[in-house]
Each structure stands twice: as structure tokens, then as C-alpha cells.
């Protein structure tokens, strides 16, 4: 019993050191394309089926870059686990998406670039600057 337990600990330590050392020598880094956001998310959520998951798992076992990303996303997923069902309704939302985005652009680029959103900008009288109900597109 004592020998077995000792052997278990020894093999765990051996594996631990072996893996860390391999990675520190830039081992386990696959060449080629990395996983995209779509696949990363679906993998973390356990939403890939076996057919899709097999190459993803093969890749993750070989690619340090993607594996690190998935590890961080898993931690993030757990940190925000309670947030899943929450829907936030805040007062005073801007009435149109173009206003939100133009506001963002002016903060980022220091200009209000109306041209970017010109395709959907329509001169339209808004009853008020703030809106408490969603825009209703029902005909």
C-alpha cells in the first residue's frame, strides 16, 4: 500500500515535470491554423459533437497557444457562471444603434464619422433622446 502510494506520487511528479519542461522548451505547439472564436466557445461549452471535437482535442493537445486560450476562457466561464441567465435592463438607453456606435467612434477616433453608418442613417424625428422601450419594427 505504502509502495503503491509512493509510486503514484512519483509518477505524478514525473509527469508534471516532464510536461512543464516540454512546454517550456516550446514543445506541444502545433503548426498551422489556430481555433477560431466559434470553435473555442463551442468547445468550452461542451457543444461540439464527437465528429467536430476529435480534431479540436487533437489540436489542443498539440497547440500550446490554443490550449492556453481555452484554459483562460474556462476560468472566465466559471467566474461568470452565475451571469448566464441574467438580463440587464437599464434605463436611459439610446434610441438607435447608430447613435450608440457613432458615440463609440467619436470616443475612439475623436470624430463623429457619420459616413460609416450612412447606409442606415435616416433623418427621423425622435420623440426624446432617451428611450425606455425598444424600437418596434412591426408593420
Amino acid at each position: 500500500m505504502g509502495k503503491l502510494a509512493s509510486e503514484d506520487i512519483q509518477i505524478q511528479r514525473l509527469i508534471d515535470s516532464y510536461l512543464r519542461l516540454q512546454v517550456s522548451k516550446n514543445g506541444f505547439t502545433a503548426e498551422g491554423e489556430h481555433l477560431d472564436e466559434d470553435f473555442l466557445t463551442a468547445f468550452i461549452e461542451g457543444n461540439l459533437n464527437r465528429r467536430e471535437a476529435r480534431p479540436v482535442v487533437d489540436h489542443l493537445a498539440a497547440c500550446m497557444f490554443c490550449r492556453q486560450i481555452t484554459a483562460e476562457l474556462i476560468k472566465l466561464d466559471l467566474a461568470f457562471a452565475d451571469d448566464r441567465a441574467r438580463v440587464f435592463v437599464e434605463e436611459g438607453e439610446p434610441s438607435r444603434v447608430s447613435e450608440v456606435l457613432n458615440g463609440l467612434l467619436s470616443r475612439i477616433f475623436g470624430t463623429n464619422d457619420d459616413v460609416v453608418f450612412a447606409h442606415q442613417e435616416q433623418e427621423k424625428e425622435e420623440p426624446s433622446e432617451k428611450m425606455e422601450n425598444p424600437p418596434d419594427n412591426k408593420q
Binding site: L19, R50, A71, L78
Partner: peptide
Amino acid sequence: LLLLYYHVENLKLREIARMVENPASP
């Protein structure tokens, strides 16, 4: 991958458990 997550990426057991929470997870 399990060994790498645990030993190299330092994921905790509960974090790994979270990843396989979905019963359909392959």
C-alpha cells in the same frame, strides 16, 4: 489534454469539471 490542463495550465478540478458539465460533451 486532461493532463496538460491540470499540470501545465493549472486548471483546478472544478474548472475542468465545469468544462464537461454538459452531458453531451464528447
